[in-house]
Design a protein around this nucleic acid. Structure first.
Lengths: 327, 327
DNA sequence: AGCGTTCTTGTTAGCCATAGCATCGATAAC
DNA sequence: GTTATCGATGCTATGGCTAACAAGAACGCT
């Protein structure tokens, strides 16, 4: 930087100001500085900047290794894009499972890296004192997760998603709608389940027994085998597309046709949903947008003009749902 | 840190040594330091460490936003896990498309962040002088991509994958194997194509016209519509699972059965491959492992005991392939 | 002309950890 | 006993940048 300053004939401080777009710099001086930067091949040192300014211009993103890979990938892309736009870098930490210990370690690791904020894309329900500690010091946005000290929560209306999916099946004439839920530790899973329950209750239908999977297609397959054995099931609301793939496969292998015998609705609308056989009717989730919105919320601080809740209730109707055959 | 030193009754330097596991520290002193750290609630400042030591303990990961989301997600997880193991953080940069300009910007951004190394998971073929410049200064591992100045390439034997897939179809008795390739700019696509060509040549079969998609299920669907119109096609090697989903859907919609009328083999073995209808026969790729291996290669420097090439030729035989009907 | 403002630039003092050298005592070797 | 060697620790300078203050120049006003 000293080289640049010398070449441009100004002080280091002026170089710093020029590069950071400080308002009070003579345009001509700024030009000279930029030319000098080019000439010298200068590249600023972000460690030094972080040390000096106290801010690293880095956001820590916490992800869960299990769970849908589509959502992870899309959320990451959204976060990265929005962060990059604002001049922030993104540091990731993955936790292998929903576990408070792992979560503490991940946050701790990112905090050590000196991130300026967290985007937590892990729907952990319980919050430990240590987690509170860390998130008290560093601004945090939780993506549809639990509320922790001072953390903002970007809410996605998963309950509405559950309601929309269930209502769609009822509207088609199904008398009963079963539900294959995600694991109970996941807030998404709970909320979608609540939406399902509410919707059934509103329709005066008693909820059938709950099935539970772990988001994996394989768990969907296993639960699908059970579903196939119960003749009275005509409609299932599956909590994720990936599980729905498994369910459908199991049903078909056992000679139950989708949607003729059993209708399936799920949630996510991943890229492959339209290419399932039959194409999945599913509630769309815009993960990329969630990621971007989380960053916006994080960076804008209190005067956020971002809506803290992103609706998630647009149904993509495809071919996995139909009126019940027996009508 | 000064607080810690005071509390432990030692100098700051000793604290630094104790925390970094320097060999010449009295165990008793070390213990005292650790206790003091706990007491004071000290968390080291990585910016200062980076500034002082010249190394940031951060790896830059370059990803492509398009292309399969499964692979992206799995590679990221592998990189993150291996990096974390070695005490490195991961900084990501996504580029929206295969474009040298975007690539330069991504590398530049990461270089500004002061990363100690790059893992480039983008199979860009051409390398610009500016890219060379950056990667000359910073150790780089390219994941099956192009060789650039001083960069190591972790080769995945995609050609072998193409060969295995094609051979499988020939072995089943197909006289001819068509190929739906990925975009030409992708090295993976080229290599798989070469494997296909070689295999056909070795069998004395003249290669049919090449079809090309963009990795998306939708492009698979569109090409699948074309394939469905050509009665003589009995076997297709599709360059990715996601495209295969689209191809199969298109064939089925037009009344061509898979595998009875047309056999389909693809590459990747994503989580959903086993739940396609019919389940996909596909060449397995262990993306997580590729990511982890890239990091190992990067960090171990020249005395890498990592094999620079990871074989990728294990075929998961499922139900999308069968002998041709007309035999 | 004289004075207060505003704009632009420079000076100085850190930010926090580490490298490198210096120091000191203890152990080993002669 | 004396010197060489080694292990443990401390001191000081330094990395590259920015915050805070200081100072000079330019401008507008009375």
């Amino acid at each position: 930087m000293a080289d640049v300053a010398r070449t441009a004939g100004v002080s280091a401080q002026t170089v710093s100001r020029a590069l950071r777009g400080s308002p009070n710099v003579n345009p001509e001086t700024k030009r000279r500085v930029l030319v000098a930067v080019e000439q010298v091949g200068y590249r600023f040192n972000s460690a030094a900047r972080a040390l000096s300014s106290g801010r690293s211009h880095t956001i820590g993103l916490v992800l869960l290794a299990s769970g849908g890979y589509y959502s992870r990938s899309a959320v990451t892309a959204g976060v990265e894009a929005a962060a990059g736009e604002a001049g922030y870098a993104v540091n990731i930490a993955t936790i292998a499972a929903l576990d408070t210990g792992l979560m503490e370690r991940a946050l701790s690791k990112l905090a050590d890296q000196g991130v300026d904020g967290f985007v937590i894309a892990v729907p952990l329900i319980s919050v430990t004192p240590k987690m509170e500690d860390i998130t008290r010091d560093i601004p945090t946005v939780t993506l549809d997760g639990s509320r922790t000290a001072g953390a903002r929560v970007l809410g996605i209306d998963q309950q509405e998603a559950g309601r929309v999916a269930t209502q769609h099946l009822l509207d088609l004439g199904h008398r009963q709608v079963w539900h294959l839920s995600g694991p109970d530790e996941w807030i998404e899973a709970r909320r979608r389940r609540q939406g399902w329950q509410e919707c059934l209750a509103a329709a005066g239908v008693e909820a059938p027994p709950l099935l539970e999977g772990d988001w994996s297609p394989d768990s969907g397959y296993r639960q699908g085998q059970i579903i196939a054995m119960i003749p009275e099931v005509t409609a299932v609301f599956v909590a994720s597309d990936e599980m729905a793939f498994g369910v459908i496969r199991a049903l078909q292998e056992r000679g139950r046709s989708v949607p003729d015998d059993v209708s399936i609705v799920s949630v996510d609308d991943i890229a492959l949903a339209a290419y399932c056989s039959p194409p999945l009717t599913t509630v769309r989730q815009d993960f990329y947008r969630y990621g971007a919105a989380a960053v916006a919320l994080l960076l804008q601080g209190d005067d956020a003009d971002v809506d803290e809740s992103v609706a998630a209730a647009s149904l993509s109707v495809r071919a996995s749902t139909a009126p019940p055959r027996s009508r």
